[in-house]
Design a protein around this nucleic acid. Sequence first.
DNA 1: CCACATTAGGTTGTGCACAACAAAGTTGTA
DNA 2: TACAACTTTGTTGTGCACAACCTAATGTGG
Lengths: 159, 159
Amino acid sequence: MPAVDHLVCFALYAANRTTTQAYRVLLEPWNLTYPQYIALVTLWTDGDQSVTSLGEALQLDSGTLSPMLARMEAAGYVTRTRRSADERVVTVSLTPRGTALRTELAHVPRCIAAGSGLPDVDSARELIDALHQLTEAMKDLRDHPEPVIAASRAPRTTA
Amino acid sequence: MPAVDHLVCFALYAANRTTTQAYRVLLEPWNLTYPQYIALVTLWTDGDQSVTSLGEALQLDSGTLSPMLARMEAAGYVTRTRRSADERVVTVSLTPRGTALRTELAHVPRCIAAGSGLPDVDSARELIDALHQLTEAMKDLRDHPEPVIAASRAPRTTA
DNA sequence: CCACATTAGGTTGTGCACAACAAAGTTGTA
DNA sequence: TACAACTTTGTTGTGCACAACCTAATGTGG
């Protein structure tokens, strides 16, 4: 077994890429990527909204979203219009075609859920909770990096 | 709470990016990225090896590794030499500088482990196992995509 | 030996991520 | 009303990921 397989970070990294690959197979007929799909899920569920709002939901910044939304607009799934009340804000709206995808892609979450190997909703929620906790812990670490003490003897786990 | 937060796939996606961001803070002084770091971990642990072997360990293909290893060679951390016995094979070897990083970066896994919020080695292993199982399930799905049956009523979980 | 398939690695093109920066609009305040 | 500070979005440059393709080297059957 490769050395990195003992690290939480690598298990996360590998699982994320493999999941993205599974989505790729499902989404390819619509020329959609996984990040584009979750943007659509957000728009379907929470409705048309600003770039910033979408970025907060997906935890992505404008450097990622601007080109991605431009591609989705070119594909005819969304439109981008500046609000007259505040010309800084761009509202991302679903087109009829983008709205129709909600029905066309209804099999996607079913395929993923059925193929996930997770036996029920509770085990899925447990995994989600564990990942959310890890995310929050890593945000702390990212935003408050402890000064490196060379001689530190922190408790040892294998993250 | 954003709609996508109920999906296993998004929890995975967000946790992976946030973990990478935490590593970025730790690795930035050495101009290393997270994928470069796990390549080094593999070389430190399993020794010099071919590009293919490294790709199997990290689950990455030559399209990703070739440019990355070229950057690591330019940084002076590894060398790439063709084997005389089989000129197709390139051996990736640690330079003295690359080997020295193992000591210099010894704080990195400690910082991540201490900041991960995982209380002990057992809980880390549980999470790793759950992620490995998910990875294998997603590999199955990726490699054997079931033909989409529009009327399928698969058991519902929220993956 | 020769034609062919196979294998290893590299190249090209597209799409995220993200840091750093730029530009335009809005707001608070002197 | 000026004008500096702030907000929102977009742009640029770098580095993964990965599909598709290419080349060189090796192996294999005839």
